[in-house]
Design a protein around this nucleic acid. Structure first.
Lengths: 342, 342
DNA sequence: TCGACTCTTGAAATCGATTTCAGACTCGGC
DNA sequence: GCCGAGTCTGAAATCGATTTCAAGAGTCGA
């Protein structure tokens, strides 16, 4: 048919249809202002040539890129896959692409970030990592206006950035209150990684709920974890070696809860007969574990959807300032938590 | 300091340094050919103005985009997160961005794909979804040369596309041989979604291994699943209702294995005492389940890394034709499989 | 002292689409 | 028959960087 060499440009279409490139462009982006007959001719030419707009060219002229970048601390962590799915589902219908950057938990996150900011790489940014150095975020750093940016899941104290998160402290309180309500008097906690805002919020919620229930807050019952399966299993070893064990544990992530349960059950301890466990996240497998895991549900898809909406809102100006959206959490009682043995 | 209005362009830097834009450009992309003193002046000017190259402009001129798109069937599936992590880790140091498109398992995958092909959106494409309509992939469809493309995890029979995958049939054979070796005579299989190439390869491997071991291949013992936890639990209900049950099951995914085990254990059946189970994938939680899950290990990060390398190779011409890389798998025997009860 | 060469550098064309600006044309009303 | 308003269209400028081409400045040997 036509030559298959060089990709067809708007010039080719214009020539083919006997009009100017301006008209072709109008047919594509604002058909209404083009006369019906002309439009038909152009559309016919487009179809015949198989023309497709060249994004780089359009982006250059329009001064936008059509993509949003999501900065995640660790892409391998399945926790983010569902969130990103929500982001993607929101972005696609609005014509935006999703660019993913994995900071690999590294301190070079700042560098990564700088790379994306103001370089015309993306129109907006969703930050899922609260450990980025503040210096990089302060407007004026590098002398260049920063693109719209929202921070999701995590947040940064004292930094006025649009934000989507769940009510972490409330989740912790729900979990601990649940355990206390079952009759547990000795309740422990496996924490997230030190320094993380989520970790701190959940610890704070745990302490608050313990105090409210009039229970002891024993520091030895706070096991240091990092959200991972292995850190849960590690905490289990500490717990097993302990003289005076807590009878119930609230874990800051479902993965740690699963790691803990797996390890204690391998040691012959039974859940929930010997120890009750509550997780956080409600990952999909939680309901299928043995025993099914009681947990605090966090709607990950919704987080992604709302974060994406928020950036888009910032971009088109319908969202201004630094709104904060705190999503509710919910306790899901399953079989891993029960009244303590008499 | 300087005005904070408009982002600084290469023109500004050129003016600041008293050179032409050509020289500034050379300093950035090929410093060697610029005189040392001039180069220093330009670098100084770049630092002073905080200049950063505008990607759309560069891309337009260079006729590349600097990004690779990964088309995944379902981003919410954590199976892909580790693969994508490998892709990202390989792409970043080479200066490429990772663009992610979620086809949402929909038939519109073709449309999605078309959107990315030849539109100057990406320099290459990694396809993790084998269900794309072939018509969209045939070079010449739409009259435009297709960008480099590799298909990973899955593949398409009779389509000569660069390909990275694991040896699925061998994995199935390993699993079944392992169960047969333990003494099981009645071995069943929970399959993946119908029509999927992975499903078919694993079924074929299962049948081959059963035949080789001289065991019966009973159709009733092939449970239809779709890789999901719930489908594993569903198969468990069928299995429980069965008069003559297989004593061992090979599941085409760890998630189905976990769903199966969770459901039968909830019904009072013990694993591996009453039934042995082997999964496929070796997802991270497999080792922490109760009992720890025996499975066929599939190196997901490696798949991502190799797929990314392959596209990059196609782009820079070091890879030609349609190479196929079949990664080995490995059986990991844990506690969910044991000799059948006497 | 005069080419022949190399080394640097800048002017200008280029990538492909969008958009402004103004011109051409139509139509209705007076 | 003329004028103004309204419609539609094309020429050309523009987005910001890269790269070709050629020219100017030295260098070196004969």
């Amino acid at each position: 048919m036509t030559e298959m060499k060089r990709p067809v440009t708007i010039q080719d279409v214009a020539r083919e249809a006997g009009v100017s490139t301006a008209t072709v462009s109008r047919v594509m982006s604002n058909p209404g202002i083009v006369a019906a007959t002309t439009r038909a001719a152009v559309e016919e030419a487009i179809a015949r040539t198989g023309y497709a707009v060249h994004h780089s060219a359009r982006n250059l002229r329009r001064q936008r890129t059509g993509s949003i970048v999501a900065l995640v601390p660790n892409l391998a962590n399945p926790f983010f896959s569902q969130i990103l799915s929500g982001v993607s589902a929101t972005l696609s219908p609005r014509g935006y692409h999703l660019l993913i950057a994995d900071t690999q938990n590294g301190p070079q996150a700042g560098g990564q970030l700088l790379h994306y900011l103001g370089h015309g790489v993306a129109d907006g940014l969703i930050l899922f990592d609260g450990t980025v150095e503040r210096a990089h975020l302060a407007p004026g750093a590098g002398d260049r206006p920063l693109p719209p940016m929202v921070i999701a899941c995590e947040w940064m104290e004292g930094l006025a950035l649009p934000n989507v998160r769940v009510d972490n402290a409330a989740g912790a309180r729900l979990a601990v209150a649940h355990l206390a309500g079952l009759g547990h008097r000795r309740i422990g906690h496996i924490t997230g990684p030190a320094g993380n805002v989520l970790t701190e919020a959940r610890i704070a919620g745990t302490r608050a709920a313990l105090a409210q229930a009039g229970l002891e807050t024993r520091e030895a019952w706070f096991f240091a974890g990092d959200f991972s399966l292995d850190s849960g299993a590690f905490a289990a070893r500490e717990w097993l070696a302990m003289a005076e064990r807590p009878t119930a544990l609230f874990c800051a992530s479902d993965e740690m809860a699963a790691g803990f349960i797996g390890a204690v059950q391998a040691a012959g301890v039974e859940v929930p007969r010997d120890v009750s466990v509550v997780g956080f996240d409600n990952i999909e497998i939680a309901a299928h574990l043995t025993p099914p895991l009681s947990t605090v549900r966090q709607q990950r898809t919704t987080i992604g959807v709302e974060a994406a909406r928020m950036v888009l809102g910032c971009i088109d100006g319908t969202v201004t300032g630094a709104p904060e959206l705190v999503l509710p959490v919910e306790l899901i009682a399953r079989r891993s938590s029960a009244a303590p043995a008499a």
